[in-house]
Design a protein around this nucleic acid. Structure first.
Length: 480
RNA sequence: UCCUCCUUAGCUCAGUUGGUUUAGAGCACCUGACUGUUAAUCAGGGGGUCCUAGGUUCAAGUCCUAGAGGGGGAGCCA
């Protein structure tokens, strides 16, 4: 008999049809004549209740069946006599596929701390929480491709191993096949990378943007969605050494078109989660509400998870310039009362997390897009404004997580771009291929980067980025 | 990298100003009871390198020093 997925079984009527299910036992409740197994196969959040009637089975058939064991059960799908589920499976044939010794198996039918689950990342898929996160993550991956595909964008696989440090976005992981114990040296005593695999020093990519620009300046509208790597020693709830980034790059878009696309995309993705993952989101919402009950009233969120997601889809993102943001911050209550750790005094300094949070959560109470930052605090490739002081950068700020998107209109003028590179000590020579796009048929273009895991933090309501990626890579941690 | 907090049973946690037996509870596990349970319930049982290494003391889970691991915050950013 062909296996029926539990998600499908739960949507059938209890008409005593015969089905076969396979999955992992989450919980066993046994009494003298009957036992109930909650079985989950990952196809959905909910379990299928399997009923074992000891009139038909040996009394010891469940002796080795504990939480975590894998089973195959054939039987009749019937209307449940108990409350709590519509249908249940009356077992007729029961097979234990794999035991899970309860003296060793770490998961139990109870709440575990997220810290503990991180230490058993190989098993945490078997919890309701990570099942939900995994399904939401998948749906969002799919939604990203669907959004861009439906708009006529082409997906570009940018290289994972690169020979350039794209934007000075951070420390890079070196890729080498040289023997680190005795690397070849030149006459000057420095490591001879001409002997390395690629004949030069190479690294893992920190961004696919520059390559995406090359493609956009021929294909018009492209996007990358791949892993990026940063060897920064960042120990926070919103940084990973290996994370996934979505980077659209569009020819003929100015910064306003860029903002329109970013806003439309974020709303589309959140809407997609609401439309396709409602069971998992409700579970995540409940989890978050329970967690917040432990907190004092004033630290709890004003909105539930679903309310917040609906709110973002419905609201217009507030668009202001950096200069306007500084004016608001200088005049703000917390600044005047010296409540900020970093007081806002003058134009030109970068905005701190606490300032961004104030603007989003207290002042505007809606997602905010800040544009036209001072040129000195932004990357070399961003287009200079007429004032010669600011660049056409845009950062999208979300409640709770802060910066979710960073982007800009790109500098398409060859002379201006090379001047900026000189000013900011970017090695022009290594970037010859990037500069040629400005020599041959250059056009105005724009793009941005979205940290996929940060979006997932927002959608799932979790606080720690290590809990929205299956195998987090952080400083001192690559166990799984 | 900086600041700060934490580490006691498989898990979640108590453990008073350092001092009374053999360091406790709930869950999990084992045994028994129970005719439909919902993280079942009831009774009983087994289970400990109190993170590691030093030190103070008549006496250390508790105090001190160092180290390891983890959490939260900051910076860098996505």
């Amino acid at each position: 008999m062909k296996r029926t997925k539990i998600k499908d079984a739960l949507s059938m009527s209890g008409d005593n049809r015969k089905i076969l299910i396979m999955g992992w036992v989450r919980n066993k409740r046994a009494s003298k004549n009957l036992a109930f197994l909650a079985v989950n196969d990952g196809s959905c959040l909910h379990h299928l209740q399997v009923v074992i009637d000891f009139d038909h089975f040996d009394n010891h058939i469940l002796d080795d069946v504990h939480t975590g064991a894998s089973v195959a059960v054939e039987g009749k799908l019937s209307t449940s006599q108990g409350t709590g589920q519509n249908v249940e499976l009356q077992a007729e044939d029961f097979r234990l596929l794999g035991k899970a010794d309860p003296n060793e198996y770490p998961l139990q039918p109870k709440r575990h701390s997220l810290e503990f689950l991180r230490e058993i990342a190989h098993l945490r898929f078997r919890t309701n929480l990570f099942g939900a996160v995994t399904r939401v993550r998948h749906a969002m991956i799919f939604a990203v491709h669907k959004f861009f595909n439906d708009k006529g964008f082409y997906n570009i696989h940018s290289p994972i191993i690169t020979g350039s440090d794209a934007e000075g976005a951070g420390e890079m992981f070196q890729v080498t096949t040289l023997d680190l114990n005795k690397p070849p040296k030149t006459k000057d005593g420095v490591i001879d990378y001409s002997k390395d695999f690629f004949g030069k020093q190479t690294n893992l990519t920190v961004s696919g943007q520059l390559e995406a620009e090359l493609a956009a300046l021929a294909m018009s509208e492209v996007y990358t969605f791949g892993p990026t790597f940063r060897a920064e020693n960042s120990n926070t709830v919103r940084h990973l050494a290996e994370f996934w980034m979505i980077e659209p790059e569009m020819a003929f878009y100015d910064i306003n078109d860029n903002m329109d696309l970013a806003e439309e995309m974020l709303k589309y993705l959140v809407r997609y989660a609401l439309d396709n993952c409602i069971d998992d989101l409700k579970f995540l919402e409940q989890r978050r509400t329970n967690e917040e009950k432990q907190k004092p009233q004033n630290e709890r969120s004003a909105m539930s998870l679903l309310e917040r997601l609906e709110f973002v889809v419905a609201s217009d993102f507030k668009r202001i310039t950096y200069t306007e943001a500084i004016d608001i911050l200088i005049e703000s209550k917390p600044n005047k009362k010296k409540k900020f750790n970093y007081p806002v005094e003058s134009w030109g300094t970068d905005l701190q997390s606490e300032h961004e949070r104030f603007l989003v959560e207290k002042h505007f109470k809606t997602p905010v897009i800040i544009t036209d930052y001072p040129k000195d605090i932004k990357a070399f490739y961003m287009k200079m404004n007429e004032d010669n002081k600011t660049v056409r950068a845009m950062d999208v700020l979300f409640p709770q997580i802060g910066e979710i998107i960073g982007g800009s209109q790109r500098e398409e003028n060859y002379d201006m771009l090379t001047k900026r590179m000189k000013d900011m000590d970017v090695p022009e020579k290594e970037m010859w291929w990037f500069l040629e796009t400005r020599k041959f048929g250059t056009v105005p273009h724009s793009g941005y980067g979205l940290g996929f895991e940060r979006l997932l933090l927002f959608v799932t309501g979790l606080n720690n980025i290590r809990d929205v990626i299956p195998f987090p890579r952080t400083p001192k941690n690559a166990e799984f």
